[in-house]
Design a protein around this nucleic acid. Structure first.
Length: 318
DNA sequence: AAAATGTACAACCGCAGCGAA
DNA sequence: TTTCGCTGCGGTTGTACATTT
């Protein structure tokens, strides 16, 4: 026996909403709220609609302070950075963009932003005389971030300098991805800082750093700079402290840490081998107030932190 | 001018997770 | 502890409109 339908499909209208339906739904919710029950709501107000349809219409269109279209360059960069780091978790990405809905961002990414980024990458590749990526390859590159178990064939995309990473498979895969995207690594340290600057979606001028860690081993950082190009770096000295599962504390990022901690971040927990999990929470001056939001992603270690270890050595993509 | 193809975006569907019973 | 129903999420589809052939 299958699952019972959420509403009487035969008696329910589908397709675009009319202005009258919108007005009915909005007037009711403005006055009485949703009552915590979307399924019962359409009957209460005499709408021949499924409760889920009402919910969607409200959240994506009728709800106050919704922005539609006209994504700014800054919003583009936030979406790109977050997509590269956490993949298609549209609701989490939307939470970083006030007034934007997950549906809007998802549509925007699929129809426009992905192509825009692809265009920039192709330009970067052409400038370096590296064979252009096919669209499928581009999609696979993103998928490899999300599914690090899949493999990359790098034979045609070797850059002039390839750092030898003595660390996890994940780091190798990220390195390989950067190469395939047309990236080129170079060495820098705090006397010779990278010439590019990451574009931090959270705080101007402070790079959003995705660290693939074990702390105490080699860290890898990557993001989208303010020219829209994907960058990566390798932190040889691993100046960050702490252990897996630790709250993100001031002292963990004392070098180059921004003052304002009112950001969101993710912290991997569990052991350095085998299964790991994420915590998502608010970074504050008291530490990292986290709550588990996802468990058991095998060997997929990212930390998003509003910090950049200026004192460490870097192999950075340019 | 009309058909074919592409684009943008609203809306739908199935599923997982969660809480209440 | 199990079951059930609701919610939220993300992949996908449907469709109106735009552009190209």
């Amino acid at each position: 026996m299958g699952r019972a339908p959420c509403c009487d499909k035969a008696n329910v209208k589908k397709g675009p909403w009319s202005p009258e339906e919108d007005a009915k739904l909005k007037a009711y919710i403005d006055q009485f709220g949703t009552g915590g029950n979307w399924i019962a709501l359409p009957q209460k107000i005499g709408l021949k609609r499924c409760g889920k349809s009402c919910r969607l219409r409200w959240l994506n269109y009728l709800r106050p302070n919704i922005k539609h279209g006209g994504f700014s360059e800054e919003e583009d960069n936030i979406i790109c950075s977050l997509y590269i780091s956490i993949g298609s978790r549209w609701s989490i990405i939307a939470a970083q963009l006030p007034g934007r809905t997950d549906n809007d961002i998802k549509n925007y990414w699929n129809t426009r932003l992905k192509k825009k980024l692809l265009g920039k990458q192709q330009q970067a590749l052409a400038a370096r005389r590296i064979p252009a990526l096919k669209k499928d390859d581009f999609d696979k590159n993103f998928n490899n971030i999300i599914h690090p178990s899949s493999s990359l064939n790098l034979n045609n995309y070797e850059a002039s300098y390839v750092p030898n990473l003595n660390t996890s498979t994940q780091d190798h895969q990220v390195r390989d991805l950067i190469l395939k995207m047309g990236g080129k690594f170079y060495y820098s340290d705090h006397h010779h800082p990278p010439s590019f600057q990451f574009n931090n979606p959270m705080e101007n001028q402070n790079p959003l750093v995705f660290q693939s860690s074990n702390f105490g081993e080699l860290n890898m950082e990557f993001g989208v700079s303010n020219d829209g190009i994907f960058h990566g770096s390798v932190d040889q000295n691993s100046s960050g402290g702490g252990e897996f599962g630790d709250p993100i504390m001031l002292e963990n990022f004392e070098n180059g840490l921004v003052e304002d901690f009112n950001n969101y971040g993710m912290m991997p927990s569990s052991s350095t081998s085998g299964e790991s999990s994420y915590s998502l929470g608010e970074i504050s001056s008291l530490g990292f107030n986290y709550s588990d939001f996802e468990a058991s992603q095998h060997q997929h270690h990212h930390v998003i932190a509003p910090a950049f270890a200026h004192h460490s050595s870097h192999y950075s993509l340019q």
